[in-house]
Design a protein around this nucleic acid. Sequence first.
DNA 1: TTGTGTGAAAGTTTTCACAGCT
DNA 2: AGCTGTGAAAACTTTCACACAA
Lengths: 229, 229
Amino acid sequence: MPPDVQQVPAATVARLPLYLRCLEELEQTKVETVSSSRLAELAGVNAAKLRKDLSHLGSYGTRGVGYQVAHLMRSIRFELGLDEQSPVIVIGLGNLGQALVNHAGFGDRGFPIVAVFDIDPNKIGRRVEGVDTAVEHLDNLETVVAAHEARTAIITTPVGAAQSATDRVVAAGITSVLNFAPTVVQVPEGVALRQVDLALELQILSYYQPRPETSPEHGARDENLRAAR
Amino acid sequence: MPPDVQQVPAATVARLPLYLRCLEELEQTKVETVSSSRLAELAGVNAAKLRKDLSHLGSYGTRGVGYQVAHLMRSIRFELGLDEQSPVIVIGLGNLGQALVNHAGFGDRGFPIVAVFDIDPNKIGRRVEGVDTAVEHLDNLETVVAAHEARTAIITTPVGAAQSATDRVVAAGITSVLNFAPTVVQVPEGVALRQVDLALELQILSYYQPRPETSPEHGARDENLRAAR
DNA sequence: TTGTGTGAAAGTTTTCACAGCT
DNA sequence: AGCTGTGAAAACTTTCACACAA
């Protein structure tokens, strides 16, 4: 790995979108200024941590007052590269793919779903709510990605197809991959990857369940948001 | 916080389910023994990290040989408290709720969905694939939770309803909450919580997109699974 | 000879506590 | 008087590198 001038620590990057979401809530209620302690409370984090996170933006709060909601939102959006819409493609129209596509939350937050791919002939050509174009065959991937200049792909294929689907979207020019298939996929250097496995979240929670028999002491604790995710 | 004998570090707990998933894949291919380096490769982590993680289980690998797949699976399941099925309820039958309920992945991994709740009269009584009982009104929550001895709830309500839904399931006896509503919910001490916001994942990825204009250097890196989630 | 288990070092993240701006 | 920005300490996590068991 190169010298790698890491501007903003990974743990901070993973929290910035959370702060942004809280700020959006505040803006909707016409709040113009917010203190670190109030925002931290909304985000469920410690106030010092929040201030340190924001300090990486070179962000200007005002001592004795707090942060300008609108200004802070702009700073975070800029830092994350959320200034413009970022078209997304979805590979695999199973249950989860279907739900993600219908889910308005992506488009509303700057990630419009511009195309959905599958290989099942029964699904090709089907119209899906929330997407302008019909379901495409995976063979059209390269053309469609190029046409929309999409850079981000969501993988919701079955496990067995996830790696090949990933390889293929990467070859087509995708540089960010969000994998929901419950298997680890590999991507080359230069491609960003996050993996979410829903059942895995439940298994993690399971550890923190109060349990009688087990050794000295488990016992529920909090502090499990998405630690650094 | 009390002295709190933390058996296993949080970062390790968050990875154990991942190892378990990899081991399940190995078992299906009749592999009986695996080395730390091979398993680490499958899980996408560093081998030393994996060994240290497993050392917290007091788990016995065999030097010069590796780990017994079957034995290691048992150890991890025991540590996480996955020995028995853990019934789950889902609150909110929107797009995402629907998808999660249909999704076979939960039941297969020991988390059968035993009931789904909503408050929309049009949804109450509807049958949903993957669940034995019809959609219930939220008013029946307490009775149903008690009947199934459910301890885990998945929240997929709209933002505005998430906190009250959470308060209510906790009052009904739920001790693990997985929140998909894009808002922070609070839970009392003793209740375990994880929050997943799908759009937020895309925003995090956005930071790691190669971008031209921006300051000294961003540039995509890997290492973003769910870092200590 | 192979590959685990683990001290010790390095790196990252969180938290504290307070100087200093408004 | 209030609240940010930040050094410094503490806590946690990762990685290294090697003794040692099979």
